[in-house]
Amino acid sequence: MGLPADDSNPTIDETGPPDRQTLRLLEKHLSSDSLVAETEFDPDSYEPRILRALLDTGQYPESTTAVRVDIRWFTTGDFSMHYVEEHSNGELWECRCVLRRSASRNHPS
């Protein structure tokens, strides 16, 4: 879901607490996605820091034993995602992305 940028925060050098509302919304949408087997909040739904989506390994090659996406969403509108694939040979494939909207909106290019 694309959200409009927040212009109200003048500082670029900070991050906010987890955005509980957005994490909950994302959880709702992810839990109805056919690629998602399970969703959970870390440490729990009362203190959500990370939304974790465990993906359905049935839709991956057999050598993939576990796949998850960890999502952090901050009240500043910034968010980060961490994708981790575990393989049967013990290898770990991962990638991270961070989007800092609070920074980019103060550095118009």
Partner: peptide, 18 residues
């Protein structure tokens, strides 16, 4: 990394808010 740093600072702010 910026990623880890953001996570740590957000956790701290999350603790205060919670």
């Amino acid at each position: 990394t910026v990623h880890e740093r953001m996570a740590t600072l957000s956790d701290w702010q999350g603790v205060i808010r919670d």
